[in-house]
């Protein structure tokens, strides 16, 4: 859901050149019409959608309302294709979006399509690559994951104080296993020598890559690495007799279910086999 107050940005790795939109990471080219090119040129000047609609309507001699409708549709299409980042919007629109998504979830019992944000990852060496992925996850998804987890910890502590010492490592592990999971995918993509970027949408996160052929290792890399960390944590807990290490292992171990058809990664893996 987008309105004319929304700010849009062309993400790093995407550029407008000779009337075409180039995705340099995935190596794809999208030819543009005259009005689409005008929209994107004005977006590069960091103008709001309302201003862009007014300018394009004057330039092409079309009604502003028609241009605004087309512009919003254009922005939403590019956003869903990871070619445009969208942020902001009026407070009324934010509330309407939140209420709409809540109603959608209740009625359809599924999650609605969320606004997607594309983040560039460093391609200068493996360590900077992994560091940039963890920075993105830390900034964009950690608060979303840690807030409900902290609420759960508070409830557990209220029920029994001793539970906090056992629950806290598991809650930390929920975020860490997200990072390790994405590291696993990133390592496999790195091994293939392919370009990639990170996409976040609310609490969802994904690594998008340019490997076109079926690559089972890329799909299996995330759950397998997280599962391996979980097994190591279980071994440590058995040797040291540490309940903290045991509870820390649980989210990592459950990540192994990501190798099966019950998860998105597992379904992609089954298709690639």
């Amino acid at each position: 859901m987008t309105d004319l107050d929304t700010e849009v940005r062309i993400p790093p790795g995407v550029e407008l050149r000779d009337g075409r939109l180039l995705d340099n990471v995935l190596g794809q080219t999208y030819p543009l019409s005259g009005s689409a090119c005008a929209f994107l040129e004005l977006m590069l000047q960091r103008r709001r959608l309302g201003e862009i609609a007014t300018i394009v309507a004057e330039r092409f001699g079309v009604e502003e309302e028609t241009v605004a409708t087309d512009l919003i549709q254009f922005v939403e299409t590019l956003n869903s294709g990871h070619l445009l980042n969208v942020r902001g919007g009026s407070p009324t629109l934010r509330f309407r979006r939140w209420a709409g998504q809540l109603a959608y979830s209740v009625v359809t019992r599924s999650f609605p399509t969320r606004r997607v944000t594309r983040h560039a990852v460093s391609a200068h060496g493996l360590l900077p690559h992994l560091a940039s992925i963890s920075a993105i996850l830390g900034k964009h998804t950690m608060p979303v994951w840690l807030l409900p987890a902290a609420g759960l910890l508070a409830l557990g502590t209220l029920a029994k104080l001793e539970l906090a010492a056992v629950l806290a490592p598991a809650i930390l592990a929920v975020f860490l296993c997200l990072v390790v999971h994405e590291f696993g995918h990133a390592l496999a993509i790195w091994r293939e020598g392919a370009g990639s970027y990170v996409v976040t949408a609310g609490w969802n996160v994904a690594i998008v890559h340019s490997v076109a052929r079926p690559a089972p290792l890329i799909h299996a890399g995330g759950p397998a690495l997280a599962g391996a960390v979980g097994v190591c944590a279980v071994i440590v807990s058995l040797v040291a007799g540490s309940p903290q290490s045991a509870s820390f292992a649980v989210p990592f171990l459950l990540n192994l279910a990501g190798l099966t058809v019950f998860s998105k990664d597992g379904r992609s893996l089954a298709r690639a086999l």
């Binding site: 807990s237 007799g241 292992a249 171990l253």
Partner: peptide, 11 residues
């Protein structure tokens, strides 16, 4: 592994 975790926690 979850049974092992349960063993450590129950201990």
């Amino acid at each position: 592994c979850l049974v092992l975790v349960l063993a450590v926690l129950s201990q």
